[in-house]
Amino acid sequence: MDNFIDILKKDTSLLAHVIVILVITLLVYVVFNKLVSKGIKKHMISEDFDATNSRFLQQMVSVLILLIGLSFIIFMIPNLKHIATTILAGAGVIVAVIGFASQQVLSNIISGIMIVITKPYRLKDRISVRAIEGVVEDITLRHTVIKNYENKRIIIPNSVMSSEVIVNANFAEDICCEWVEMNVSYTADIKKAKAIMKDEIIKHPLFIDHRISLNKKNTDDIAPIRVISVGEFAITLRAWTWAANPGDAFLMGCDLLESIKEQFDKEGIEIPYPYSNVVWKNNRE
Rank of each mutant, 00 (worst) to 15 (best):
N158H: 05
S159C: 11
S159K: 06
S159V: 03
V160I: 14
V160K: 05
V160E: 12
V160A: 09
V160F: 09
M161N: 01
M161A: 04
S163D: 05
E164K: 03
E164L: 09
E164W: 03
V165Y: 11
V165H: 13
V165Q: 12
V165T: 15
V165D: 12
V165N: 13
V165P: 05
I166N: 09
I166K: 07
I166M: 03
V167S: 10
V167E: 12
N168A: 06
N168P: 04
N168S: 13
N168Y: 06
N168K: 09
A169Q: 08
N170S: 11
F171P: 00
F171A: 04
F171Y: 08
A172Y: 14
E173V: 14
D174L: 14
D174P: 02
I175K: 13
C176Y: 14
C176K: 00
C176H: 12
C177T: 10
E178S: 14
E178N: 02
W179F: 08
W179T: 00
W179L: 01
V180M: 00
V180P: 02
V180L: 08
E181D: 02
M182I: 04
N183M: 05
N183K: 10
N183Y: 09
N183W: 02
V184P: 07
V184D: 10
V184R: 00
V184W: 08
S185F: 00
S185Q: 01
S185W: 00
Y186M: 11
T187L: 12
A188M: 07
A188C: 14
D189P: 10
D189R: 03
D189Q: 09
I190S: 04
I190G: 07
K191T: 11
K191V: 07
K192H: 13
K192L: 11
A193R: 03
A193M: 09
A193Y: 07
K194R: 13
K194E: 15
A195Q: 10
I196S: 07
I196C: 09
I196W: 03
I196N: 01
K198M: 13
K198E: 15
D199H: 02
E200T: 02
I201V: 15
I201T: 15
I201W: 09
I201D: 06
I202W: 05
K203Y: 04
K203A: 03
K203M: 06
P205H: 06
P205L: 01
P205W: 06
P205I: 04
L206T: 02
L206D: 10
L206C: 01
L206K: 12
F207I: 06
F207L: 05
I208A: 01
D209P: 00
H210T: 03
H210A: 13
R211Y: 07
I212S: 10
I212T: 08
I212L: 05
I212V: 04
S213R: 04
S213Q: 13
S213P: 08
L214N: 11
L214Y: 06
N215G: 10
K216N: 12
K216S: 09
K216D: 07
K216P: 00
N218W: 10
T219A: 15
D220S: 07
D221S: 14
D221N: 12
D221I: 02
D221K: 02
A223C: 14
A223K: 04
P224A: 05
P224I: 02
P224N: 01
I225A: 03
R226D: 10
R226E: 09
R226W: 10
I228V: 15
I228Q: 04
S229P: 04
S229K: 13
V230W: 00
V230K: 13
